[in-house]
């Protein structure tokens, strides 16, 4: 595996909230085109980890390299350009509730591509909505959508900028098993279509099984074990096994 293939490199990442050390030296890479699932118990710092990657939270220790550039060295303007190349799907979708679905999708698009005319914008919005199977929902408000639909629209809004890296924060939490499966399959489908590299934070083992190329397990603020779903399932470690019961 050459260095060029790594789109994201985290080295000794540390983050504390007061006396609580949430991340304690996390080191992990994300390879181009890979789906990396991060598993861990609630409160183990999984969400903090991906929020550090987009600088929503500043890490106290360690370095984050995205596309070969250290995030500590980039200016605020360059950080925003970098962020456009990283998609982030929030747990609840985080749709802008004062805007319709169409306006939600247009919002990042028009701000990053000011040269686009209205026809091109409409075209891109329709394609993005079609990809997630919700073309009919364009003029609805977020309050009129179900939990699964909100996540799909959130995914469409993120993918409309064609990000190279996708970060999913518990994409199936709060959904019924059928919708969870649909979202997991959608993640896979979008990865193939847009050739993204993804980090998926979850404790839904079905989602992990369906979407992962590799799984990293986080415990006490550190990467405890990595491997494929089958490799980890066959481990005899009781802590790892507790996830597969």
């Amino acid at each position: 595996m050459s260095v060029e293939e790594k789109v994201l490199v985290l080295e000794n990442l540390g983050k504390s909230f007061g006396s609580n050390k949430v991340l304690n030296g996390v080191s992990i890479d994300l390879v181009k085109g890979e789906n990396l699932v991060i598993l861990g118990k609630s409160g183990s710092g999984k969400s903090v980890l991906i929020k550090c990657i987009v600088k929503l939270i500043d890490n106290d220790e360690g370095t984050i390299n995205v596309f070969g550039t250290s995030l500590d060295e980039v200016s605020p303007a360059d950080l925003n350009k970098m962020r456009a190349r990283i998609g982030f799907l929030f747990q609840g979708g985080a749709l802008y509730d004062s805007m319709s679905v169409r306006e939600n999708l247009e919002f990042p698009l028009v701000r990053h591509h000011r040269d686009l005319d209205q026809d091109a914008i409409d075209d891109k919005v329709s394609t993005a909505l079609d990809n997630v199977g919700l073309l009919d929902a364009a003029d609805k408000l977020p309050a009129e959508l179900s939990g699964g639909m909100r996540k799909r629209i959130g995914l469409a809004r993120t993918l409309i900028l064609n990000p190279e890296i996708m970060l999913y924060d518990e994409p199936t939490t709060g959904l019924d098993p059928v919708t969870s499966n649909e979202i997991s399959e959608l993640i896979l489908e979008m990865q193939k279509k847009y050739q993204t590299s993804s980090i998926i934070i979850t404790h839904d083992m079905n989602c992990a099984k369906l979407t992962s190329n590799r799984i990293a397990m986080i415990r006490d603020g550190k990467i405890y074990e990595t491997g494929t779903f089958e490799e980890l399932k066959s481990k005899e470690d009781p802590w790892i096994q507790s996830f597969f019961i």
Binding site: V54, L56, L79, N80, K81, M82, R83, A84, I86, F88, F90, Q91, G92, A94, L95, Y96, D97, S98, F107, P108, R111, H112, G154, R157, T158, L161
Partner: peptide, 21 residues
């Protein structure tokens, strides 16, 4: 209330991470 609600439901964070000021 409006901005507070947007902060709580991560809408402001979503704008921040998409680089839209």
């Amino acid at each position: 209330a409006e901005l507070g609600s947007m902060r709580v439901t991560e809408q402001i964070d979503a704008m921040e991470v998409s680089g839209t000021h």
